[in-house]
Write a protein that binds this DNA or RNA. Structure first.
Lengths: 190, 190
DNA sequence: CGGAATCTTGAAAGTGTTCAAATCAAGTGG
DNA sequence: CCACTTGATTTGAACACTTTCAAGATTCCG
């Protein structure tokens, strides 16, 4: 049960079976179909979400009414609008399933209660968050040193499984370029 | 002593005076002049750094030999190359003082030992890292929705104290635009 | 099969960069 | 305190990368 989640935790902290049982009390499991929403613009991001199976995207609507995708989450990734989640602010984002997905949710209050009962989980989340910071430092560095063309080529060779799994126009949006330009770049590469 | 640091911790967790005394054992305080380095390209980022007073920048040298600034840190901010710090990988970055600064450093080993002795600090760092993730989500959103011109105007009106404190060309670098273009934008605004 | 969503094409327009050179500011040593 | 040297900012013209717009071709799904 929730094997991806448990194995992810055990990568970073020791957690005995008894603690795992306690942990389960705080989880809200969700089974979602394709194109269902976990969060919509204007709502407060009530939970942080762990992708046990499937795929999520986070996006907002820009002033030209385009969907701008800012994050994806595959198996064993966390997803949340952390500002909204921590400070109870309305979120500008949508979080939506791209595929049929199994999600584990911690509401803000269950998250707090869980951390109080299982302090090892503070360590787990400290490490997870620190790794998220590291990942965003790296991604950020790429945006400084690569042109959009290079960024696209780099992404599609680094994550070919991703390019298989999600439509081109979503990748274009995530990389901050137009679907037309992606189309041009693909042609160029052949 | 280290009052900015202690008050920052106490914003997020309760820490009694006894624990503060224990905490001090793990800190390496550094007094640095302007333009001194905490990290250079190729080295492993040995410590994470808290800015008690002063100002740091982090940058790397791109393929055209420009210094590309990816982060600043003012008082009560943390600074590190987290990938290098956590996984002992050589860093592509330089970390350098912009002004005379007082820095508190935790080496990787003192950081670990401190967290083991003072588990409340796991909570503190979990919160700090989570807020760092939130901040990078926000900054990232800006890069999707603003042109470089808007990004510059937004930054310089949001952080006027910053524009005072650091040279234009560093702000240009941080925002990912050329000093020439910044110059043009400033002219435009008058 | 029909309709909607996705992907491709090509031309025109912008936004921001590059290059080269001039001007301005600032710190150092005499 | 001035002269000198280096660092920082400004200018303008030419260029490059990426977007926009408008259609057309294709794929997918019920």
């Amino acid at each position: 049960m929730y094997s991806n989640f448990i194995s992810h935790i055990r990568k970073y902290v020791d957690l005995d079976d008894n603690s795992v049982a306690l942990l389960f009390k705080y989880i809200t499991p969700l089974k979602l179909k394709r194109k269902e929403f976990l969060l919509k613009e204007g709502q407060i991001c009530q939970s942080i979400y762990f992708v046990e199976k499937g795929c999520l995207r986070m996006y907002f609507i820009d002033d030209k009414l385009n969907e701008q995708i800012t994050q994806f989450a595959l198996e064993h990734w966390w997803m949340a609008d952390h500002f909204s989640f921590m400070d109870n602010k309305p979120s500008p984002y949508f979080i939506e399933t791209i595929e049929k997905s199994e999600i584990l949710a911690f509401t803000a209050s269950s998250f707090e209660a869980m951390l109080r009962e299982l302090p090892q989980m503070e360590r787990y989340f400290r490490i997870v968050m620190q790794r998220a910071v590291a990942a965003s430092q790296l991604r950020n560095k790429y945006t400084y040193e690569m042109s959009k063309e290079e960024f696209y080529q780099h992404f599609s060779t680094s994550f070919p499984e991703f390019v298989q799994r999600v439509p081109q126009y979503m990748i274009a949006s995530y990389l901050g370029l137009t679907p037309q330009y992606v189309s041009e770049l693909r042609k160029k590469k052949l």
